[in-house]
Structures are given as structure tokens and as C-alpha cells.
Amino acid sequence: MPFTDHSDLFGAVHEDGINRLVRHIMRQRPSLFNYATPFFHNNAGLFCVKFEVDERVLKAKNPLFTEQEPLPILGAPVPIGLNFCLQLTDAQIDFHPGNVFGLPPELGALPAQRFALRLKGCMGIDCPSKEIIDELLPLIERFLVSQQQLAIGEIKERVPGISTHYTPPVAAVDNRERPRTIPLPTRQLICFCLELFAVGHFEWGSVPGSQQIWLKTRLDGLEIVDMQPNDMESAIECYLTTVLKLGILPRLIIPLEKMVLDVNKEFQEMGLTLGRTVTLQPSAVPADVPNNPAVEEDQLKAFMKLIITGGA
């Protein structure tokens, strides 16, 4: 059956095209996918995963990652922290029937009219050596005693304060007098990676109080692969599912009116006038087509129809 048997205009995008576009964006805008402390400007080899960068990014001296403050050491009396990096290393989409990647057993086979997402991320955190901790510990203890910041309260003995190269200098304080976190010396990072899979679909529906129909994105399932213990994995998956269903996806619903194109207005902007009123809008489901958009044959398909009124 031709795609335009029940519609006037048909468009589709293949999963390969979307995935190729994502890879290009990751190479041309690496700072959107990599986050790290300034330490990595001179130590790019310590990233958990080496990432490809377009030559034009290097020539333009655009940022390779988005700078982050060091991970603070909670409870420390001075603002010291650890270097870290966070990377989104891979992102793919797979339309039914599903042949770009395999889903974990918990999600099963990809059902009809469904799409799947696969995300892989890695994080690396510095782990200070025993030598660094042994060097710092006496200084930390002396600082706490001199500042009377012990858990037992004040003591009678007065211990003179100290100054170390880990104490933030004046230059490390911003305009609001908030001290910056100073990272400890880093030799290597401990890295770990996680894969997340999600399955979803599109549907048309109403919104209470609205007179029109809305296109909505729904989440069917979410799975983080091989996180231990199992209860921790389940708790995190439940939280992410709740955030997506109640926090993020409701913001992505689209009313039908936003999908209607006023063809007359477009022609008028080009200095042309039509004798009739012409609009372009999505084909109705299920009156015109069974699914719109349709997720099938490795593609996301959209069907549109022309509505012509007035004139001779």
C-alpha cells in the first residue's frame, strides 16, 4: 500500500540517520557529553574513555569538556576535594523491530510500534594515595584543634594555626567570598561504566481542561544493566522511572495546534496569495492511518493531510 493512500504527505527518518547525527554531535560538541574538573585540561589521558573530537573543534580551541568543581570531601575543615570526570560515551535509538542493539532480558523483545534507547555513561573519581592522606592528616588535625572545631567542643590548650598549600589562597575566593574547592593531587582515577536501556511509544490523548488532543511520549520500561546489589538497582530504576514519567515526559507533550501548518500564511510571506484556505495537519488516528507517528521498519514515520476550504 502506498504511503499516501490515506494521507497527502509522508515523511520518515531512519534510525541509522539519527544515530549517525548523534555521533557527529558528540564529535563536534564534546563539551555537551563530557564533564570534568579543570585538572583534565592537562591530563586528558586520564579520562575513563577516550573520545573522538572533530579537527575543527581543536583548531577553534573550543572546550572539550564542561568544567566542574572538584567533588568535595565532606566534613573536611578546609575546602578540599577530589578530581572526577563524568562522560556520556554512547547514545543510540532503535525503532521496531529492533536490530541496532539487544535489549536486556528484563525488557524482553521490542514490541510493535515501540522505540528503544540505549545510553552508556562512565564516571571516574580520584582515590588519594595512602601517602597523601598520611601527609594531610596531621595538618587537618592541627587545623581543627587550632580553630576549636572538635566534636567534643572547646579545649583549654591553644594550638597555633598553620598554613598549607591545600588551604585556599585569596585568589581562590570569588566575589561572594565563597572559597573554591581545591583538588588533592591526582595520579589515577577509579572508573566505572553503566548502561541504561529504555523502551517507549507515542500516543494521542487528552489533557484535563483542554479541548484538543495531544501527542504524548510514554515510557514502557527502564533497565540499568548489572548494578549490584539488586535492591539498589531497583530503587534507582524506580526513581528514574518516576522522574521521567512525572517530571520530564509530561513537559514534552505537543498539542495538535502546534502541528498544523497554515499554508496560506507561508505563501503570503513569499508574496503569493491562494484563492482557498489550505492547512497541513497530521492524519487522524485511527480514522486515516492506524498509527501516526508510526514506529516500524526501523523508521519513525509521519503522515500529513491537506485541508482545503473556501474558494471556487
Rank of each mutant, 00 (worst) to 15 (best):
P38V: 09
K50R: 15
P250S: 00
I132D: 00
L9H: 02
I253F: 09
D220C: 01
P63L: 04
L249E: 00
E131I: 11
E177P: 02
A287S: 14
G121F: 11
I224P: 04
F197W: 05
Q68V: 10
V199M: 03
R142C: 09
D262W: 11
G108M: 00
P104Q: 09
G75H: 06
V263E: 06
V170H: 11
I307T: 14
A44D: 10
S146D: 05
Q147W: 06
Q113C: 01
S210V: 01
L64E: 10
I162E: 06
L249W: 05
E15W: 02
D54K: 03
A60V: 03
D262K: 06
E233P: 03
I155E: 14
I132P: 03
G153H: 07
I213W: 05
G124I: 04
L280W: 07
D174A: 02
I133G: 09
N175T: 10
E266I: 15
E269G: 14
E266K: 13
T309G: 02
E131T: 13
Q87W: 07
F143Q: 02
Q149P: 08
E135Q: 13
V22H: 05
A235Y: 02
C193G: 11
I254F: 05
P168C: 08
K59P: 00
A312W: 08
E69L: 14
N292H: 04
A109D: 14
Q148S: 10
T37H: 05
V78Y: 08
T186I: 03
R20Q: 14
F65M: 00
P2A: 10
F3E: 14
I308K: 10
A116Q: 05
A312T: 11
R27W: 10
E237L: 00
E67T: 09
L107E: 00
M227Y: 12
L144W: 05
F84C: 05
K156Q: 15
G153F: 07
T217K: 08
L150Q: 15
L32I: 02
L246W: 12
